[in-house]
């Protein structure tokens, strides 16, 4: 029984990783490629690690396997966010079929400034508080 569960987890993890690689090869621009790799690959690794925990079934190994899962689930979104942000600022082109780019009307790539369109003189002025460090 446990062999069957292990085999299913291993195979589905491998298939998810293969899907992530197909996505990174076939999708048209940087953000869609990241959408393929971060989610599918993290799920694939998590399934493989659950299979490892089932295989050994010792406290130390299970703890380490779940540590890997938690670490990957915590770092994959952070890394994807950082790379996507850097890619947008560097000016990687979006796919020609992109429907909406909400950053484009508000972001000035020359001055690297972001505006909401709601600024006034009053709320742009600095109002120091008493517990400010300087």
């Amino acid at each position: 029984m446990i062999e069957v569960i292990k085999g299913t987890l291993l195979l589905s993890g491998a298939v998810f990783m293969l899907l992530a690689a197909v996505g990174v090869l076939r999708l048209p621009d940087l953000l869609t490629r990241m959408h393929a790799t971060t989610k599918a690959a993290a799920l694939g690794v998590s399934l493989v690690m659950v299979a490892v925990a089932l295989h050994f079934a010792e406290v130390a190994v299970v703890a380490r396997a779940f540590g890997v899962i938690v670490f990957i689930l915590m770092t994959a979104p952070v890394a994807a966010h950082v790379i996507g942000r850097a890619g947008y600022f560097v000016g990687s082109r979006l796919w020609s079929g992109t429907v909406k780019d909400e950053l484009r009307p508000n972001y000035d790539p020359l001055t690297h400034e972001l505006k909401s369109g709601l600024e006034t003189e009053a709320n742009a002025r600095r109002r120091p508080r008493e517990d400010d460090p300087d």
């Binding site: 993890g13 491998a14 990783m17 992530a20 690689a21 790799t37 690959a41 993290a42 694939g44 690794v45 493989v48 690690m49 299979a51 490892v52 396997a65 890997v68 990957i72 994959a76």
Partner: peptide, 8 residues
């Protein structure tokens, strides 16, 4: 990520 899976 793939290498982590392979090592597992």
């Amino acid at each position: 990520t793939l290498i982590v899976g392979i090592i597992g």
